[in-house]
């Protein structure tokens, strides 16, 4: 049963999927369809945010998310300012209040924020009048990623409700997994987390997800298989023995993918670790929509900026 889209977004910020209603999610997805059209035009710029200022505050390294937001902002004709942890005085030890004061001196209308600490955008949102858009906070949320993933699923499969979506990898440290779980369960999909328990958060039933400790049973009849990056850097700690063993038991291979539905999509938020969580034959295969996710990311971020600026649905 399709969800009725809301007319507007209730909050001034987008800090997490957890605070959105299904109607608001529907509104963002529907609005992004319009902006996807713009990407197909020869002149991709619209005057929607002319005269508005967006600060991109990235206190954690990021290239793809930051580029995606910047493209979205430029296509909406916004003025943009970039702050990153390495390129400014923003650093560990400076309090969020100081950061807020500094930023407000520039009177931005929007702050797109990536931060290593869970909840930082939520706290900043309560301190400043600008609209905060969370570009990833700690292990908590990455709402625009979940929105673009859902947008991509809907484009290919026509709907979200009833879909069986597998999310596999380092779930415990993944804000992408969490935002996707919030979004998909709100929209009526079934979410399965697949990982060894050492990479799984505790009590995932609390967020409406079913845990699987082996990949194969999770893949049964799946409509979507989303693989998360396994960070080689984490190898030194105690979560799993080796990359080789991880791939042996949890890597997505063409053979394992056979258990999923014939139309199943393969997704990945990037950057991909070939041969660690995903076999190149799958990553580059015909079911992969990984590059399309990137294109859709711009449309979703344009839609979010437009709606937070006071825009309405059609």
């Amino acid at each position: 049963m399709p969800v009725e889209a809301a007319d507007t977004l209730a909050a001034k910020d987008l800090v997490g999927i957890a605070r959105l209603t299904p109607g608001e999610i529907q509104l963002i997805l529907d609005t992004a369809e319009e902006f996807l059209e713009i990407a197909r035009r020869p002149i991709k710029k619209v005057p929607t945010l002319r005269g508005r200022t967006v600060v991109n505050l990235f206190m954690e390294p990021s290239t793809r998310t930051r580029f995606s937001f910047e493209v979205a902002e430029k296509r909406l004709s916004a003025d943009t300012l970039n702050f990153s942890a390495s390129g400014s005085s923003v650093s560990k030890g400076e309090t969020l209040i100081d950061t807020a004061r500094n930023l407000m001196a520039m009177a931005p209308d929007f702050i797109v924020m990536r931060h290593p600490d869970s909840g930082a955008p939520h706290r900043l949102a309560a301190l400043v009048p600008a609209s905060i858009i969370n570009g990833g906070d700690g292990i908590n949320e990455h709402p625009t990623q979940a929105l673009l993933d859902a947008f991509t699923m809907r484009k290919h499969l026509g709907h979200l409700d009833g879909l069986k979506v597998v999310i596999a990898g380092d779930i415990r440290h993944s804000r992408v997994a969490r935002s996707n779980a919030f979004l998909l369960t709100k929209m009526g999909a079934e979410v399965r987390f697949a990982a060894p328990a050492s990479l799984m958060p505790v009590a995932v039933d609390a967020i409406g997800v079913t845990p699987f400790y082996r990949l194969e049973p999770a893949l049964e009849d799946a409509d979507v298989v989303m693989m998360l990056r396994i960070q080689r850097e984490r190898q030194g700690n105690m979560n799993f023995p080796s990359v080789r063993e991880y791939f042996d038991f949890f890597g997505l291979t063409p053979e394992r993918l056979k258990a999923a539905a014939p139309h199943a999509l393969v997704m990945h938020p990037g950057p991909i670790n070939r041969g660690v969580e995903i076999d190149s034959r799958v990553a580059d295969g015909r079911r992969s929509v990984i590059l399309e996710q990137v294109t859709n990311g711009v449309a979703i971020r344009m839609a979010v900026l437009y709606l937070l600026a006071g825009g309405h649905g059609e």
Partner: peptide, 15 residues
């Protein structure tokens, strides 16, 4: 505290 609430709000837990 590590538990359902920490899983919900995305904070690393202490069991």
């Amino acid at each position: 505290h590590e538990g359902p609430v920490a899983t919900r709000i995305g904070i690393r837990g202490i069991p």
